[in-house]
Every structure is written in structure tokens, then in C-alpha cells.
Design a protein around this nucleic acid. Sequence first.
DNA 1: TAAGATTTGTTCGTATGTATC
DNA 2: GGATACATACGAACAAATCTT
Lengths: 253, 253
Amino acid sequence: MDGTLPTPPKPRRSRPVRVADEIKQWVVERDLKQGDKLPNETEMIDLFAVSKGTVREAMRILEAQGLIVTRTGPGGGSFVGKVSADRAKSLLANYFYFQDLSIADIYQMRKALEPELAASLAGRLSEEQLDELQTLADRFPEPAHSAEEEKDQHVASLAFHARLSDFSENRLLGFVIAFMARILTDLTVYRRLYQPPNIELWQRGRAHQRQLVDALRAGDAAKARATMASHMAGAEQLMKAQEARLKRQFMGE
Amino acid sequence: MDGTLPTPPKPRRSRPVRVADEIKQWVVERDLKQGDKLPNETEMIDLFAVSKGTVREAMRILEAQGLIVTRTGPGGGSFVGKVSADRAKSLLANYFYFQDLSIADIYQMRKALEPELAASLAGRLSEEQLDELQTLADRFPEPAHSAEEEKDQHVASLAFHARLSDFSENRLLGFVIAFMARILTDLTVYRRLYQPPNIELWQRGRAHQRQLVDALRAGDAAKARATMASHMAGAEQLMKAQEARLKRQFMGE
DNA sequence: TAAGATTTGTTCGTATGTATC
DNA sequence: GGATACATACGAACAAATCTT
């Protein structure tokens, strides 16, 4: 039976896409590392037996994924490039653009992860790193006078968390936390949140950040975790008051 | 002062990249949704005053990010496309290809997130969903007889977690958990892990999965969380025995 | 089944831009 | 500044896929 295939749903990948895959494979087979040079256009044309236009489209595909970079001129060409954290966040943001994320969803994650991060960093940061965090936490010592200033304070607070995530040795944990900070920052910047700022909660949040730096300095993992957990609970309250679905934006780059 | 700009370090984005950005903006301005049609090639050429090749390269960039899909023929053209979870995972995997992730890193995350997922699903799954999980958990009732079978069991176990993550209403939480399951699956498939399988730990893990389904069915969030936490601790032990850096592969699609 | 229409897919030739020497 | 080695961009032609009649 079934002598004829029922034409399986074959999306028929175009030639540039196939060539892009072949190039990837070519790179993997040769175990090329970041910075290594790929064949130039004319060599690619011979290698994969396609025209220049097709090669170029394939290169754009790889470039869009951050896998290669290209330079013109002598000594130029295409090179294996390391995908940057920033680009990875952008590509991921494109996905969540189509999802229906709520503030509550993000804070469910933050409550689970940020205390973990805090605990794992206790006693492992250098003086410089601690000082930098201290500086970030000490910005905006005065209560906000305007909605605009309120917004700046919130962005600064998120920057504190993003910086903290940079210090994590666990790249996955750090990335996810930084990604959430970015989403919340975009949300804060693009929207006019904060009609009725809750001064008291903000003050407590800032106090938490300072306490956290102290705990990190003292190497007290348990206290760092508890402080962060408390901080997250407060921040969540603050955000939930402004319950909003995340802005759908065709984000880029 | 500064009558002349000091020519900031401008990487000079190529024309296709700029056009891709313009198209994105064009789409956002018109608030196009998934499935909406974009102008065809010739219209794009007029619209952005570039050649056909440039338009096509720009389209490839957007396509590589999953933002558009393209079909040939009458009624064909380019359409706004929803970024699939699978593609998002692939793009993210490209980033972590260049990072140095350890088993311990992933399990630090799993221990924090999977119990949270379990708790949030308690009492919220349909009979069908619970039965499906039960079926997944009941596969491989016999202890593994070979390393190959051992591997299959591990992959099946990860499939259980991946399926569980699909049911989460928190898309971010679900995505991150599914992503980790995928990384671990790839790791298991591509590597010959499991020389000395620990039968007892595996049995306990399978028992945990069944207990978890029971707790979910009973709507007992606390028990679901505790069971999952215990399960993660066991799985971590099992994996750490095979401490390995994650395979570096130029992953794709 | 077949022909025609529509739209993307692919190639080639040529010219221009850019960075290095 | 000129030569060189690359990528970049354009335009015209043709091929392939797919829908309609």
C-alpha cells in the first residue's frame, strides 16, 4: 500500500537556506573557532556550486543569527563570530513578542531565580564589583519628584539586577535574569507606568539593595538569599499594581 | 565645540540589514499581525529604492529570525510569521554554544524552576493531560539492559519534563524548562554518557514521576513541589557522576 | 489535463565601495 | 596615490513553484 507518498507537508527550504546549513556543517566539520576565516565569496560559489546571489543570501542568514561577521576590503571576508548576549536576548525577545506574558509570569521566575543568584554570589565578588553595585544602589537617594524621575529610578534598579547577573558564573542563570531585566526595562521605558508611585515600597526596595550588597560582601549566602527574596516580593507588589500585558513590539537587534 | 563628530566606532551596517530594519519598522507602524501579507518583491524595490538582490537579502534576515515566512506562486509572497518555540530554542542554543555551561549550572536552574512549575500545575490539568503524563512516566517499566536502552530511558524522562513544561500557563517558565530539557537531550543523544548506570537512582526517579502525576491529579501543590524537588536532587546526582562540559555544536534550525 | 498567470527563486555580467599595502 | 583584494550593489534575464481556469 501507499505506493505514492501523499506529498508530505514539505515546506521546501530554499537554496540559500540549504546552503546556510551546509556552511554551518562545513564549519563544524573543520571545528573552526571564533575569528577563523571562512572561504570568500568566489570560493563559496565553487564549493557549493551556486551563484553569488545565493551565497550572499546564505551569509545573511548566518549573519542574522550572529554566527558570522563580515568585513570588506583586503584581508576581509567572513569570519566565525561569537553570538553576543545582546543579540541572543533580541532574538529571544522576538519570540516572546508573540507570547502573552504577564508581569506575574515574570515575577514568578524572578522570585525563584534572583534569590538563587544572590546566594551563589555571596563572598565571591571582588571589591571592585561590590563597589560598582554599591554605586548603582546608591543612585537616586532622594524620593522621586516626578513620574519621569520615578521611571528613571525603576530603570536604575533594573540595571542593578542586570549587573548582578553579569557576575554570575552560571551563564544560563545570568542570561535568564538579564533577559527579564531587559523586558521589564523596555516595558518601563516604552510605557507610561507609574501614575501613583508608592514611595514607601520604593524606599524599602532601595534599602534591600544596599542590604544585599552588604550580605554579598560579608559572604552571607543565607542572608543574601533572604534579602533578595524579600526584595522580589516587594517589587512584585509594586509591579502588579500596574498590571499590564507586555507590550507587543517587533523588537530588533 | 565638537564641530566635527569624532566618527564614533560605526560598524557600518550593510544595506540589506538597514532595509530589514526598515521593513520591521514598516510592519510595526502598520500594526500587522501574524499572517498579514507584506508587499511583494517589486513593490519592496520601489518602496525602499533598492535592487531585487538587496530586498531578498533583507528578507532572508527576517526569515532567519522567524519573523516572516515566504511562499511562491500566485497568492504567494511574504507574510508576518509567528516565531516558533522551536526556532527560538535553536537561536538560543547558538548562543550557549559559545558559553561554557556545566551540568551543575543547568541543575541549579532546574532545582529552582521545576518544583515551581510542578506546584503551579497542581489541580489545573485536564484528565487527558494527566493521562498523557502518566503514559510518558510509565514507559520503560523494566530496568535498562544495555547502555543504549539506558539512553532511551533518559531521553524519555526528559520528554516527560518537556511535556510538563508545555502545560505551563507561564510561557517564560515553560520555555526555559523546555530549553534545558532540549540541551540535556542533545547532550544525552550525542554523547555516550552512562557507562556505569545507577539502577537504584533511576528507579527512584521513575517512582518520583509517578508520584508527581498523582500529586498533580490530587491538586496537592505542596506535594507536587516537594516531589519534583526530590526528583531534581536525584537526577542531579545521576548527571554529576558524568560531569561533562556541554557539547559545543554549531546548532541549527 | 493543460495552459496561463503570478510570484518567488536563481543566475550572470558589470560596476562600485572599501580597506590594506 | 596607485594597485590589489575583497565585499557590496544593481539590472536584466530566465527558472521554478503554485494557483486559477
